[in-house]
Simulated assay, not measured.
Amino acid sequence: MTSPRNVATRPTANQLSDDSSMEILSVLSLSVRCNGAGPAGLDKLQASLSPWDKEFRAAKPKHTPSLELHVVDQQSFDIYDMKKPFNMGGTDTNEGLLSSELDWLDGQLEKLFATDFRANDDYTIPFKWNGARSRTVVLYSDESVAAFPKLVLGIQDVLSNAKQDWIIYLQTDDVQPEFAVWVYPDKVVVTHEYAGTVRSLVDSQEG
């Protein structure tokens, strides 16, 4: 049997043999065993499970990536970091499914960075997560900072192709210049404190 995805639901044998349950369970990963063998209908259900791309990737890009800077005050910048979870509603009650959505997004970001950079040397995507549709990426090296415009556009491409809206908190650590921004699918949000630094990084690429 395949390894279960991050969903703890364990359907009964009756559920597995009922075709009406197939669609409901299409995004669940199963770990089921009855007397050493899978129950009737398990093979059919496993074959019907959609890949995560089908579940979480948009049919076509929803936004156009842009390096346009939006400069805001610190209070506005902090709202999704400290006060309000980004793009979370009353229907987001399936923690396992949301965790799988996060895994899918992380996988897309890792593919982007792995092209030119090494995890933990040039960048990291911290394990800690606040449960909202926002994620943190930390840049560690001069090379990754110099690639800021290219990385932002790549991140925006990932976000633009996600069904749900996500934002990325992109910051530096132990490397100069210091900055922190929110990367949206179609803009970059920065405080007045770091606006000059970020604008210089963008202009250096355009020049």
Rank of each mutant, 00 (worst) to 15 (best):
D53C: 04
T9G: 09
Q176G: 11
N87Y: 04
V72L: 02
D92I: 06
L45D: 02
V202G: 03
R10I: 11
N94D: 15
G131L: 01
L159R: 02
E206A: 15
D186Q: 07
Q74P: 01
A195R: 03
I167R: 10
A13C: 01
L30K: 04
V189L: 07
G207Q: 14
L45R: 07
E68I: 10
P4N: 12
E110A: 08
D186T: 03
E206I: 14
L170P: 03
G38I: 08
E23M: 10
E95N: 13
E110R: 13
L42T: 04
W166S: 00
S66H: 05
R10D: 04
W52D: 13
C34H: 10
E55Q: 11
S141C: 00
D81V: 06
S48V: 06
T124I: 11
T9S: 15
P177W: 07
H63S: 09
G41D: 02
L45G: 03
D121H: 11
E23I: 10
E193H: 15
V137F: 01
T124F: 09
A13E: 00
A119Q: 11
D203M: 13
Y80R: 05
V181A: 01
G107Q: 01
E95W: 08
N14E: 15
K60S: 10
N161Y: 03
S99R: 14
K111L: 08
A59Y: 05
A114Y: 06
P126Q: 07
D43S: 11
L153R: 08
P177T: 06
Y123S: 05
L105E: 07
P39E: 01
P4C: 09
N94Q: 13
T191W: 06
W129I: 04
S26T: 10
R10G: 07
L49V: 05
E193I: 11
I167P: 01
T115L: 09
F127H: 10
S144Q: 03
N94Y: 11
L16M: 11
T191S: 03
D78I: 05
P11K: 05
D92Y: 05
K187G: 06
A47H: 11
V137Y: 01
F56D: 02
S29Y: 11
N161C: 09
L105G: 07
N120R: 11
G196E: 15
T172Q: 04
F117Q: 02
E23D: 10
A40P: 02
D116G: 07
N14H: 09
S17G: 15
R135A: 07
V145F: 06
K54V: 13
S141D: 08
R5P: 02
D116H: 12
P39W: 02
S144W: 01
V71Q: 02
W182M: 07
R199V: 00
E101T: 08
K54Q: 13
